[in-house]
Design a protein around this nucleic acid. Structure first.
Lengths: 160, 160
DNA sequence: TAACAACAATTGTTGAAACAAATATTGTTG
DNA sequence: CAACAATATTTGTTTCAACAATTGTTGTTA
């Protein structure tokens, strides 16, 4: 009869679980840094990314749901997210005549100015987050993450 | 005069940024699967993890803030998280006589039963999330994530 | 062309996340 | 030992996230 093994309980049920929890934990730690920065400007990370998307298209507009689809994290609340940006006059919206269902969204001059003030601090933030990784570690990480999420991406994403 | 290069705008400002956004995106995609599962049992992922922690200690209790510190994601709302679990009688709480500031939390039999019903589905969920990665890819990913978050961890975490 | 399906956005509502401030208890120090 | 600092938790409040249902518009088809 084997002696009762009094070893410490295994921390994880499986390598898949360990990887997922590790992903969650790491995201949570790094996000804290970003949130601090954006909070100083009364922005959320999602709002910032919506503005970035719009800057990328400027001066062309984007339809509301196109923004929702391209955001990093899914955004069922896209209307109210844009509401807040519009109240601050960082974006403007208008329905298009040809298809009155669609609302086109553009970034304003004030929005562009806010983003350009944020460019350097955001870069420094990413430096603080992950500046301690080598170029090779970064590209390995990026590749592994891409592989990890591939089966869970919609096909025609800007993210595939 | 150089011809205007009409190449596509670069998607990311830096490899650090790409890695962080990639992390965020991947977390968001995988979390959707977990959330679906837990929602069927009226749980959040955080609540589930609090229960897991308590199961790991059972029959010993854990102090409220100890749970908060050990959770994957930080939990400033720990009191109300535990309130909801207590209302459902999945945990029990009591102040200790020796130090009346502390509230000790234990998992109940009902809590243990719920967790055991969830064991198999959770395992299958992690399988769906990351089952397409090889063992080597998983351990590489785990290692890279650990390296990525290390400077941002408090020293005496269960997560260091 | 009337009825219905599909699409785009909005609204209502609920629960959770985040921060700051407050309460109760215990430890420390002049 | 009184005053104050530190600890552990709770509460108040605001904002965000998520889901379902609704409105308004356009496309399709019997």
């Amino acid at each position: 009869m084997p002696a009762p093994t009094k070893r410490r309980q295994k921390a994880f049920d499986s390598p898949r679980q360990e990887a997922y929890l590790s992903l969650w934990r790491t995201y949570d730690r790094l996000r804290t840094l970003e949130d601090e920065l954006f909070a100083q400007h009364d922005l959320t990370a999602q709002q910032y990314n919506a503005l970035r998307l719009l800057r990328g298209q400027h001066p062309k507009p984007l339809a509301t749901l196109t923004i929702a689809r391209r955001l990093i994290s899914r955004a069922p609340d896209i209307t109210r997210l844009l509401d807040k940006l519009e109240q601050r006059e960082l974006i403007s919206r208008q329905r298009v005549a040809e298809n009155r269902r669609v609302v086109q969204v553009s970034i304003t001059t004030a929005g562009l100015e806010l983003l350009s003030r944020l460019d350097a601090p955001v870069r420094r933030c990413h430096e603080r987050q992950l500046g301690h990784l080598t170029a090779e570690q970064l590209s390995q990480l990026i590749e592994l993450l891409k592989t990890a999420r591939r089966p869970h991406e919609e096909p025609n994403q800007s993210w595939s």
